[in-house]
Write a protein that binds this DNA or RNA. Structure first.
Length: 202
DNA sequence: GCGCCGATTTGCT
DNA sequence: GCAAATCGGCGCG
């Protein structure tokens, strides 16, 4: 198991990073337990030219400022005022590229069984932070240390597919960009008709 | 300052 | 299928 090196996050092609993150492990060492999940679904957000990105048009606000940090930084924000979504900042300083981690396959012991009823939690970007116990406190955290980081255990997905992104219909032409990467038919990816439109890359 | 909308999920009709 | 939960950013004035 090898932690990803700083150079990985400095790549200039954010879609390449989004694709390469599939199959990697997102790890959170909290108090006594280590929470980890295998990344099975990602979305790329390409800086100021991407209308779907919070940094579109070069926006710099209190919320988006962290997106301009150097690659290898975490960007966590609240969506709809209640769900924390976890992103990985990529590229050099002042280029606000980011990869949204949309789904992970939980590994090891997780407290999610405690939920009432026998029904397992659904899938989606808000579940990633829930499962790995990540929250707004991790906004701006570096992924280059040992608390929250991404590791490669040698696993390579047999198949990788690409599609349009989910929930960005407002973004005009950018809504059609093939910036969503996922492992086809994986049980933890977001259930969505768009999965059938996925184009197989691998 | 006010009001609408969003990279969503859940539960009820 | 749809509304609720709930907050920061943005446009408007």
């Amino acid at each position: 198991m090898q932690q990803l090196p700083p150079d990985f996050y400095l790549q200039s092609n954010v879609t390449a990073v989004a694709q390469q993150l599939l199959g990697k492990l997102l790890v959170h060492r909290c108090k006594k337990e280590v929470l980890a999940g295998r990344i099975v679904e990602t979305e790329a957000y390409a800086g100021i030219e991407d209308r779907a990105s919070h940094a579109w048009g070069g926006r710099r606000t209190k919320r988006t400022e962290i997106m301009y940090a150097r690659g290898g930084t975490a960007y966590v924000y609240k969506c709809y005022g209640m769900h924390a979504l976890f992103n990985v900042i990529t590229n050099e300083v002042d280029i606000p590229d980011a990869v949204l981690i949309r789904a992970v396959e939980p590994l090891g012991a997780f407290g999610i069984k405690k939920r009432k009823g026998t029904r397992l939690p659904g899938s989606g970007p808000a579940l990633v932070t829930q499962i790995l116990q990540l929250n707004m406190e991790h906004n701006g955290a570096t992924l280059l240390q040992q608390t929250v980081f991404i590791a490669d255990d040698g696993y390579q997905p047999a198949e990788v597919a690409v599609s349009r992104r989910i929930g960005v219909d407002y973004a005009g032409a950018a809504a059609q960009w093939l910036y969503r990467f996922f492992i086809p038919k994986h049980p933890h990816i977001t259930p969505h008709p768009i999965n059938k439109e996925g184009i197989l890359l691998l």
